[in-house]
Amino acid sequence: MAKFEWKTNITVEIEGNVYQVIDFQHVKPGKGAAFVRVKMRDIIKGGVIERTFNPDEQITTAHIDRKNMQYLYNDGTLYYFMDNETYDQIPVGEETVGDSLKFVKENENVTVASYQGNVFAIEPPLSVELVITEAEPGVKGNTATGATKPAIVETGAKVNVPLFVEQGEKIKIDTRTGAYLSRA
């Protein structure tokens, strides 16, 4: 069996949990055996841990499936996604989806991440274009640099936009931060 090689961003399964390696360091102390210090993020629960391993310890890599799927609709408790290749539909619970669809409209594509057939995360596109449904009018003369006002987009999410952006306009939003990027 080949020796396990530590790398950043690989996923491993340890004691039934799946982790993504954030950072690692090979340590050779003056006395005693060498070891590997690893910082990992639990990709299902979200916590970060640090742990040491013997360099000869056998570690199992975890294969994460990331599939491009179309967000169909929400029936109140479940969100439905369709596989773009097989047209199979899968339901995903609210606790798994969380805030990840806050800027995603129905029929848009997202990435569904799963491990051993269990969906654990929904990854929206990096940026989306949405229409502003509610925004206060910009006040003439109120042009302080970088001034923003709250606006509500068609998915119901709140976004801070520059004063010149008006209701009915289409804007581009960064889905990771919820920040206004530009007019679309």
Rank of each mutant, 00 (worst) to 15 (best):
G178W: 07
G146F: 03
V92K: 07
K170N: 13
T143Q: 15
A144R: 06
E15V: 04
N74P: 10
H26K: 12
F35Q: 10
E95G: 06
Y180N: 03
F81Q: 09
I64P: 00
A62M: 02
E5L: 14
N142T: 04
T61L: 09
F164H: 03
K158T: 07
Q20I: 05
F53M: 03
K67V: 13
F120T: 02
Q58M: 13
D65C: 08
Y73G: 04
V27E: 00
S100I: 07
D65L: 12
V21G: 00
P162K: 09
V104K: 08
F120C: 10
A151S: 01
E134V: 13
Y180I: 11
I14P: 10
M40H: 07
N84V: 09
N160V: 01
P29L: 04
N9G: 00
V161H: 02
I22M: 11
R51A: 15
G178V: 01
F4Y: 06
G16R: 02
E136D: 15
T177V: 04
K45Y: 02
G141L: 15
A62L: 00
L72Q: 12
E85R: 14
Y79T: 00
Y180V: 07
I49M: 11
V112Q: 09
W6Q: 01
I173Y: 09
I49H: 05
R66K: 06
L181S: 08
N160S: 08
I152T: 14
Q116G: 01
G46K: 02
K102D: 09
Q20R: 04
L130I: 07
E15H: 03
Y80S: 11
K158W: 04
L72I: 13
L181H: 09
K45M: 05
L101Y: 02
S182W: 10
A33V: 06
L130H: 04
R66N: 01
P91L: 13
V27I: 01
T60D: 13
R37M: 14
P150M: 08
G146N: 09
M40W: 03
A33G: 05
N9L: 13
D75N: 15
G138F: 11
P55N: 12
H63K: 14
P162Y: 09
Q89D: 05
I90T: 14
G46S: 04
G32M: 03
I22G: 05
F4W: 02
G93R: 00
L130S: 07
N84Y: 00
K31G: 14
E106K: 07
Y80C: 05
V38A: 12
E106Q: 12
E94C: 03
I44S: 04
V161K: 05
A33I: 06
T148K: 10
W6T: 10
V153F: 01
P91R: 12
G30T: 11
G146I: 00
Y73F: 13
D99E: 15
Q25I: 05
I173K: 01
A157C: 03
E85G: 00
T145S: 14
S114I: 11
V36W: 04
K3L: 12
I59S: 08
Y115V: 06
A62K: 02
K158D: 12
K172V: 08
